[in-house]
Protein backbone atom coordinates (compact mmCIF):
# COMPACT_ATOMS: atom_id res chain seq x y z
CA UNK A 1 0.00 0.00 0.00
CA UNK A 2 1.30 3.36 -1.01
CA UNK A 3 1.69 5.87 1.77
CA UNK A 4 -0.95 8.60 1.69
CA UNK A 5 -0.42 12.02 3.16
CA UNK A 6 -2.96 14.39 4.67
CA UNK A 7 -2.43 16.64 1.66
CA UNK A 8 -3.64 13.79 -0.54
CA UNK A 9 -6.82 13.40 1.51
CA UNK A 10 -7.68 17.07 2.05
CA UNK A 11 -8.75 17.88 -1.48
CA UNK A 12 -12.06 19.29 -2.71
CA UNK A 13 -12.94 16.04 -4.50
CA UNK A 14 -12.65 14.13 -1.20
CA UNK A 15 -14.92 16.48 0.76
CA UNK A 16 -17.63 14.61 2.66
CA UNK A 17 -18.86 17.14 5.19
CA UNK A 18 -18.73 20.90 5.53
CA UNK A 19 -20.85 23.49 7.24
CA UNK A 20 -23.76 24.52 5.04
CA UNK A 21 -23.68 27.96 3.43
CA UNK A 22 -27.09 28.53 4.99
CA UNK A 23 -25.19 29.09 8.21
CA UNK A 24 -23.36 32.42 8.12
CA UNK A 25 -19.67 32.61 8.96
CA UNK A 26 -20.37 34.62 12.08
CA UNK A 27 -19.04 32.85 15.20
CA UNK A 28 -22.01 31.54 17.20
CA UNK A 29 -22.77 33.46 20.37
CA UNK A 30 -23.52 30.26 22.30
CA UNK A 31 -21.44 28.79 25.10
CA UNK A 32 -18.99 26.01 24.19
CA UNK A 33 -20.82 22.72 23.73
CA UNK A 34 -24.31 24.23 23.59
CA UNK A 35 -26.77 22.26 21.49
CA UNK A 36 -28.24 25.39 19.90
CA UNK A 37 -25.50 25.50 17.28
CA UNK A 38 -26.13 21.92 16.20
CA UNK A 39 -29.90 22.47 16.11
CA UNK A 40 -29.39 25.62 14.01
CA UNK A 41 -27.10 23.82 11.61
CA UNK A 42 -29.24 20.76 10.98
CA UNK A 43 -32.29 22.99 10.47
CA UNK A 44 -30.40 24.92 7.81
CA UNK A 45 -29.03 21.69 6.28
CA UNK A 46 -32.60 20.46 5.87
CA UNK A 47 -33.69 23.72 4.23
CA UNK A 48 -30.73 23.45 1.87
CA UNK A 49 -31.35 19.79 1.05
CA UNK A 50 -35.03 20.47 0.34
CA UNK A 51 -34.02 23.50 -1.73
CA UNK A 52 -36.36 25.77 0.23
CA UNK A 53 -34.00 28.62 1.10
CA UNK A 54 -35.52 31.10 -1.33
CA UNK A 55 -38.96 30.61 0.15
CA UNK A 56 -38.15 30.30 3.83
CA UNK A 57 -38.91 32.87 6.50
CA UNK A 58 -37.71 32.07 10.01
CA UNK A 59 -38.80 33.59 13.30
CA UNK A 60 -36.28 34.00 16.11
CA UNK A 61 -37.36 34.16 19.78
CA UNK A 62 -36.16 35.98 22.86
CA UNK A 63 -33.68 33.92 24.84
CA UNK A 64 -30.23 32.57 24.06
CA UNK A 65 -31.25 32.13 20.43
CA UNK A 66 -32.49 35.71 20.07
CA UNK A 67 -29.65 36.24 17.59
CA UNK A 68 -30.51 33.14 15.53
CA UNK A 69 -31.04 35.55 12.63
CA UNK A 70 -27.35 36.39 12.73
CA UNK A 71 -26.48 32.76 12.03
CA UNK A 72 -29.27 31.39 9.88
CA UNK A 73 -28.70 32.66 6.38
CA UNK A 74 -32.35 33.04 5.35
CA UNK A 75 -34.89 35.84 5.76
CA UNK A 76 -35.63 36.14 9.47
CA UNK A 77 -37.88 38.09 11.83
CA UNK A 78 -37.08 38.52 15.50
CA UNK A 79 -40.21 38.17 17.64
CA UNK A 80 -41.11 39.54 21.05
CA UNK A 81 -40.71 37.08 23.95
CA UNK A 82 -43.04 34.13 23.44
CA UNK A 83 -44.83 35.60 20.43
CA UNK A 84 -43.03 33.72 17.66
CA UNK A 85 -45.98 31.42 16.84
CA UNK A 86 -48.25 34.47 16.41
CA UNK A 87 -45.61 36.24 14.29
CA UNK A 88 -45.22 33.09 12.18
CA UNK A 89 -49.01 32.86 11.85
CA UNK A 90 -49.10 36.41 10.51
CA UNK A 91 -46.39 35.65 7.96
CA UNK A 92 -47.82 32.30 6.86
CA UNK A 93 -51.35 33.67 6.48
CA UNK A 94 -50.25 36.39 4.07
CA UNK A 95 -47.65 34.21 2.31
CA UNK A 96 -49.27 30.76 2.31
CA UNK A 97 -46.79 29.45 -0.25
CA UNK A 98 -43.72 30.34 1.82
CA UNK A 99 -42.10 28.05 4.36
CA UNK A 100 -42.30 29.52 7.84
CA UNK A 101 -40.68 28.23 11.00
CA UNK A 102 -40.08 29.40 14.54
CA UNK A 103 -37.08 28.54 16.65
CA UNK A 104 -37.81 28.94 20.36
CA UNK A 105 -36.45 28.04 23.75
CA UNK A 106 -38.37 26.69 26.72
CA UNK A 107 -38.85 30.01 28.51
CA UNK A 108 -40.10 31.58 25.31
CA UNK A 109 -42.35 28.76 24.16
CA UNK A 110 -43.44 27.06 27.37
CA UNK A 111 -43.79 30.01 29.78
CA UNK A 112 -44.52 33.46 28.37
CA UNK A 113 -45.59 32.12 24.97
CA UNK A 114 -47.76 29.21 26.11
CA UNK A 115 -50.91 30.82 24.78
CA UNK A 116 -49.46 31.65 21.36
CA UNK A 117 -47.96 28.16 21.11
CA UNK A 118 -51.11 26.27 22.03
CA UNK A 119 -53.36 28.38 19.80
CA UNK A 120 -51.07 28.22 16.77
CA UNK A 121 -50.95 24.42 17.27
CA UNK A 122 -54.69 24.19 17.79
CA UNK A 123 -55.49 26.29 14.72
CA UNK A 124 -53.30 23.91 12.78
CA UNK A 125 -51.12 26.64 11.33
CA UNK A 126 -49.06 25.08 8.58
CA UNK A 127 -45.72 26.02 10.12
CA UNK A 128 -42.80 24.29 11.81
CA UNK A 129 -41.95 24.97 15.45
CA UNK A 130 -38.51 23.96 16.69
CA UNK A 131 -38.47 23.97 20.47
CA UNK A 132 -35.19 23.77 22.36
CA UNK A 133 -35.71 22.46 25.88
CA UNK A 134 -32.71 22.73 28.17
CA UNK A 135 -34.66 22.99 31.39
CA UNK A 136 -33.40 26.44 32.26
CA UNK A 137 -33.34 30.12 31.33
CA UNK A 138 -29.92 30.34 29.77
CA UNK A 139 -29.69 33.92 28.55
CA UNK A 140 -30.67 35.59 31.81
CA UNK A 141 -28.25 33.43 33.75
CA UNK A 142 -29.70 30.07 34.71
CA UNK A 143 -33.05 30.75 36.34
CA UNK A 144 -35.79 28.15 36.72
CA UNK A 145 -37.76 27.43 33.55
CA UNK A 146 -41.20 25.86 33.16
CA UNK A 147 -39.29 22.75 32.08
CA UNK A 148 -36.84 22.60 35.04
CA UNK A 149 -36.97 19.11 36.53
CA UNK A 150 -38.26 18.44 40.06
CA UNK A 151 -35.36 18.88 42.45
CA UNK A 152 -33.20 20.48 39.76
CA UNK A 153 -31.12 23.42 40.89
CA UNK A 154 -31.22 26.78 39.18
CA UNK A 155 -30.47 30.31 40.34
CA UNK A 156 -34.12 30.81 41.32
CA UNK A 157 -34.47 27.30 42.74
CA UNK A 158 -31.08 27.18 44.44
CA UNK A 159 -32.11 24.28 46.70
CA UNK A 160 -33.75 22.38 43.86
CA UNK A 161 -37.19 22.80 42.30
CA UNK A 162 -39.70 22.28 45.08
CA UNK A 163 -42.77 21.16 43.21
CA UNK A 164 -45.11 21.91 46.11
CA UNK A 165 -43.99 25.53 46.09
CA UNK A 166 -42.91 26.15 42.49
CA UNK A 167 -45.20 23.88 40.56
CA UNK A 168 -44.50 21.08 38.12
CA UNK A 169 -42.42 21.08 34.98
CA UNK A 170 -44.53 21.40 31.85
CA UNK A 171 -44.40 18.80 29.10
CA UNK A 172 -45.41 21.05 26.24
CA UNK A 173 -44.76 18.48 23.58
CA UNK A 174 -47.12 15.87 25.04
CA UNK A 175 -49.63 18.67 25.54
CA UNK A 176 -49.63 19.98 21.96
CA UNK A 177 -49.73 16.42 20.61
CA UNK A 178 -53.25 16.16 22.04
CA UNK A 179 -54.48 19.07 19.92
CA UNK A 180 -56.19 18.28 16.63
CA UNK A 181 -54.19 20.96 14.83
CA UNK A 182 -50.80 19.26 15.18
CA UNK A 183 -49.74 16.87 12.42
CA UNK A 184 -46.30 15.77 13.54
CA UNK A 185 -44.98 15.96 17.09
CA UNK A 186 -41.66 14.51 18.15
CA UNK A 187 -38.94 14.81 20.76
CA UNK A 188 -35.31 14.57 19.76
CA UNK A 189 -31.78 15.41 20.94
CA UNK A 190 -28.55 16.57 19.30
CA UNK A 191 -25.79 15.44 21.69
CA UNK A 192 -24.47 12.38 19.80
CA UNK A 193 -23.99 11.69 16.10
CA UNK A 194 -26.85 9.16 16.15
CA UNK A 195 -29.16 11.61 17.89
CA UNK A 196 -28.27 14.38 15.46
CA UNK A 197 -29.01 12.13 12.48
CA UNK A 198 -32.40 11.22 13.94
CA UNK A 199 -33.23 14.81 14.84
CA UNK A 200 -32.33 15.94 11.36
CA UNK A 201 -34.59 13.30 9.86
CA UNK A 202 -37.42 14.58 12.05
CA UNK A 203 -36.78 18.19 11.06
CA UNK A 204 -36.74 17.15 7.43
CA UNK A 205 -40.09 15.44 7.83
CA UNK A 206 -41.48 18.57 9.46
CA UNK A 207 -40.41 20.83 6.60
CA UNK A 208 -41.63 18.30 4.03
CA UNK A 209 -45.01 18.30 5.78
CA UNK A 210 -45.19 22.06 5.40
CA UNK A 211 -43.94 22.04 1.83
CA UNK A 212 -46.51 19.41 0.92
CA UNK A 213 -49.30 21.37 2.69
CA UNK A 214 -50.02 18.52 5.11
CA UNK A 215 -52.87 19.57 7.40
CA UNK A 216 -51.41 20.90 10.60
CA UNK A 217 -48.41 22.08 12.48
CA UNK A 218 -45.15 20.16 12.88
CA UNK A 219 -43.62 20.47 16.32
CA UNK A 220 -40.11 19.31 17.17
CA UNK A 221 -38.77 19.42 20.68
CA UNK A 222 -35.03 19.09 21.04
CA UNK A 223 -33.93 18.25 24.55
CA UNK A 224 -30.63 20.02 24.91
CA UNK A 225 -27.98 20.91 27.40
CA UNK A 226 -27.07 24.12 29.16
CA UNK A 227 -23.68 23.41 30.54
CA UNK A 228 -23.22 27.00 31.78
CA UNK A 229 -26.59 27.03 33.50
CA UNK A 230 -26.19 23.52 34.82
CA UNK A 231 -22.61 24.35 35.86
CA UNK A 232 -21.01 21.32 34.20
CA UNK A 233 -18.53 20.64 31.44
CA UNK A 234 -20.19 20.12 28.04
CA UNK A 235 -19.58 16.37 28.04
CA UNK A 236 -20.74 15.99 31.65
CA UNK A 237 -23.83 18.03 30.79
CA UNK A 238 -24.66 15.68 27.94
CA UNK A 239 -24.25 12.71 30.26
CA UNK A 240 -26.41 14.36 32.93
CA UNK A 241 -29.01 15.11 30.28
CA UNK A 242 -29.21 11.46 29.26
CA UNK A 243 -29.49 10.32 32.86
CA UNK A 244 -31.91 12.94 34.14
CA UNK A 245 -33.71 14.76 31.32
CA UNK A 246 -34.43 11.81 29.05
CA UNK A 247 -36.38 9.77 31.63
CA UNK A 248 -38.67 12.76 32.19
CA UNK A 249 -38.69 13.91 28.55
CA UNK A 250 -38.53 10.60 26.64
CA UNK A 251 -37.17 10.60 23.11
CA UNK A 252 -39.18 9.73 20.05
CA UNK A 253 -42.27 10.49 17.97
CA UNK A 254 -45.50 11.25 19.77
CA UNK A 255 -47.70 12.01 16.78
CA UNK A 256 -47.03 11.07 13.18
CA UNK A 257 -49.17 12.01 10.18
CA UNK A 258 -51.84 13.34 12.51
CA UNK A 259 -52.06 10.11 14.54
CA UNK A 260 -50.88 9.68 18.12
CA UNK A 261 -48.26 6.93 18.25
CA UNK A 262 -47.40 7.15 21.93
Amino acid sequence: MAEITLQDIIKPENLVYKKTDLMTDKPLSYCPGCGHGTAHRITMEVIEELNLAEDTIGVAPVGCSVLAYEFMNVDMTQAAHGRAPAVATGIKRVWPNKVVFTYQGDGDLAAIGTSETIHACNRGENIVIIFINNGIYGMTGGQMAPTTLPGMKSSTSPYGRDVAMMGNPLKMTELVAQLPGTYFVTRQAVHTPAAVRKAKKAIKKAFENQRDCKPGLSFIEIVSNCNSGWKMTPTDANKWMEENMFPFYPMGDIKVDGQLVK
Binding site: A79, R83, A86, A88, T89, G90, S115
Partner: peptide, 13 residues
Protein backbone atom coordinates in the same frame (compact mmCIF):
# COMPACT_ATOMS: atom_id res chain seq x y z
CA UNK B 1 -51.24 40.30 22.10
CA UNK B 2 -51.31 37.54 19.50
CA UNK B 3 -53.19 39.80 17.08
CA UNK B 4 -50.60 42.60 17.15
CA UNK B 5 -47.80 40.05 16.79
CA UNK B 6 -49.53 38.56 13.76
CA UNK B 7 -49.57 42.12 12.44
CA UNK B 8 -45.85 42.40 13.20
CA UNK B 9 -45.09 39.21 11.28
CA UNK B 10 -47.23 40.04 8.27
CA UNK B 11 -46.09 43.69 8.17
CA UNK B 12 -42.49 42.53 8.29
CA UNK B 13 -43.30 40.36 5.29
Amino acid sequence: IAAINMVYGAAGA
